[in-house]
Write a protein that binds this DNA or RNA. Structure first.
Length: 581
DNA sequence: GCCGTTTTCGGCCCGACTGTTTTCAGTCG
């Protein structure tokens, strides 16, 4: 039972209660519990095994949900959840995924027409059977049919790199509308979440109508879902939703704050405002008693009005940032300009497409001071991994290039490294004598993902305790939207890393982002150093560093928490610390 | 169901847009 499985049960309880028409705040409690559990850095199972009482220290988990968690861990299910499920047919919950269909409509459709799933709904809407129901007409039918079609077409969330590639041109396009002052992306994009549900864009301008018209006419638009004076929504041809909000300059800060989210953060901030006798909306901060406008022009003003310093967007997940802000203890987050090198680079020798020198020259152009060449090892045959002989040859080549750079008085160093495979039993894929000749050893799992949590945890810990491995690459093996992370007790792995001065990689490749934000925070709490690496297979991919840096920021990491913000000499010193437990 | 610098009871974020309505409910973010 992973956290995600437990969270799913609570989400379903919330949905079912909502369909039943239960108290909305009770519904919210269950949904909130799901969100909180999904965001925990540690498995609920491990927490309960250590000390059950700790559960109720987690905000949003009280007596009732505590009991249900314990039951779920013990029996694999929750009897309350099961009872609710019995009240409705199994396909009913999927109806909520149809845009424009919420709990009230689900209930109505089920009770009046016996609609039990999406397929029933599609048939009924096509046959014009919905229009007789209260509050539903022809247009509702057409919208439902369209939404079902959209649901079948594209699913769920987009990787941040993909979303950005659509958002950036759209922002440029909107800037060309008449009399526009400013166009700013907000939402999960501004928070740099690893996946993005939709693109949120804010516009300040003289007149709204021309901007909204231009937005609706964007060539990439498939459907205009809503078009109003202040807010419009479209679906792009790739299925991505984009919202544009037009607002007054005077409300820009409040709107940016509101539209950036997260929802959980906003709820907490608004609750705070309320307790101070204020009301916070996207139009500003107002005094509750007489509706007097207090602030809203800039985000700084908004936070100041509720007694807080400005909080960086990446931290706004209600994971302690408000409490930290209160105490003036917000982290000074790492920035892209702090990065001085990259410890995970492939070349043509394995499965990359540039030479060592090409990669080094590109890194120099970026202002880096060092890179490590880290090819796959022989076990990864598909990537043309190197055996000991080829690696020894590459060591010689790197030394030659370094000598050449030195002769040219270039202050840049190529570190001799490898991305050595960590085999199923935790042993390394290359001979120890050869590994000891390297400056840096990155260890990674590329096979046998289907182990149990204990097996995989021990596999990584064995590599960490080898005294040879410096960095554990992409620690969970996840590929966003393609492959789940393998089961792992991350806390145990990190504690082992801490004991052995081993560094955890934050792989910046946008499909990986592994460590994720939550793991980064865990690393910080445990005191493990993180390396942000691009895993570049060609020189352009070094630009992916930004996805890594912003994920690190989401995980509260500061410059000093990151290995590759340090000058080369410090790096070499830290690498030497290893194996001296 | 959760929670507490007004509270262990009585609150719980706030507003836009749509489609159906003659003033509003439902959905969404």
């Amino acid at each position: 039972m992973e956290n995600a499985d437990i969270a799913k049960i609570f989400y379903e309880i919330a949905d079912l209660l909502e369909i039943k028409g239960e108290n909305p705040f009770r519904v919210r409690s269950y949904r909130n519990a799901g969100i909180v559990i999904e965001g925990l850095p540690e498995s609920v199972k491990a927490i309960v095994e250590r000390n059950e009482k700790e559960l109720e220290e987690i905000p949003g988990i009280g007596k009732s949900i505590h009991e249900k968690i314990v039951e779920i861990l013990k029996t694999g299910r929750c009897s309350y959840h099961q009872e609710l499920l019995k009240e409705f047919p199994s396909g009913l919950l999927e109806l909520l995924r149809v845009q424009g269909v919420g709990p009230k409509k689900v209930k109505l459709l089920y009770e009046e027409l016996g609609i039990k799933n999406i397929s029933d709904l599609e048939k009924a809407a096509s046959a014009g059977k919905l229009r007789g129901l209260p509050g539903m007409g022809e247009k509702t039918e057409a919208n439902i049919l369209k939404a079902i079609k959209g649901l079948k077409g594209s699913e769920g969330r987009f990787k941040i790199a993909v979303a950005l590639s659509y958002a950036e041109p759209l922002v440029e396009y909107l800037k060309k509308a008449p009399d526009v002052f400013d166009v700013q992306p907000a939402g999960s994009l501004r928070r740099w979440k690893d996946t993005i549900g939709d693109i949120d864009i804010l516009v300040t301008c003289k007149k709204s109508a021309p901007v909204m018209d231009r937005f609706a006419a964007y060539p990439d638009v498939d459907t205009v879902v809503a078009k109003g004076e202040t807010k419009s929504t479209v679906i792009l041809k790739n299925g991505l939703q984009a919202d544009v909000r037009v607002l007054d300059k005077k409300a820009f800060g409040a709107a940016l704050q509101y539209f950036t989210g997260s929802k959980q953060h906003n709820i907490a901030i608004r609750d705070r405002a309320k307790r101070m006798g204020l009301k916070l909306s996207e139009y500003g901060v107002f005094r509750e008693k007489d509706d007097k406008w207090i602030a809203g022009e800039s985000e700084e003003d908004v936070y100041k009005a509720v007694g807080l310093p400005w909080i960086p967007a990446e931290l706004r997940e209600n994971r302690g940032e408000i409490e930290a802000a209160e105490k003036n203890k917000l982290p000074e987050l790492v920035e892209i300009k702090d990065i001085k090198g990259d410890f995970h680079i492939h070349t043509k020798e394995s499965d990359g497409s540039n030479t060592i020198e090409e990669m080094a020259e590109y890194a120099m152009k970026k202002g880096y001071k060092y890179i490590a060449i880290t090819e796959h090892s022989k076990a990864v045959g598909i990537a043309h991994g190197l055996d000991e002989k080829r690696l020894l040859k590459q060591i010689e080549e790197i030394e030659k290039i370094n000598a050449k750079f030195e002769a040219l008085n270039l202050k840049f160093k190529i570190l001799k490294g490898t991305e050595v495979d960590i085999k199923a039993d935790g042993s390394l894929d290359l001979d120890k004598k050869v590994l000891e000749k390297l400056d840096i050893v990155v260890g990674a799992v590329h096979s046998r993902f289907n182990m149990t949590e204990d097996e995989m945890t021990n596999r990584l810990i064995k590599a960490i305790e080898s005294g040879i491995v410096n960095i554990i690459a992409h620690p969970t093996g996840r590929l966003i939207a393609a492959r789940e992370p393998y089961p792992l007790n991350m806390k145990k792995v990190m504690e082992a890393a801490k004991r052995n001065n081993v560094i955890m990689e934050l792989n910046a490749y946008p499909d990986r982002l592994d460590l994720n934000d939550i793991h980064c925070k865990l690393a910080k709490d445990i005191g493990v150093m993180v390396a942000i690496s691009t895993d570049s297979h060609n020189k352009m991919q070094m630009e992916n560093i930004r996805f890594g840096v912003y994920t690190a920021r989401r995980g509260w990491l500061e410059k000093e928490d990151i290995l590759n913000t340090r000058p080369l000499n410090d790096v070499l010193k830290m690498l030497k610390l290893q194996g001296q437990v």
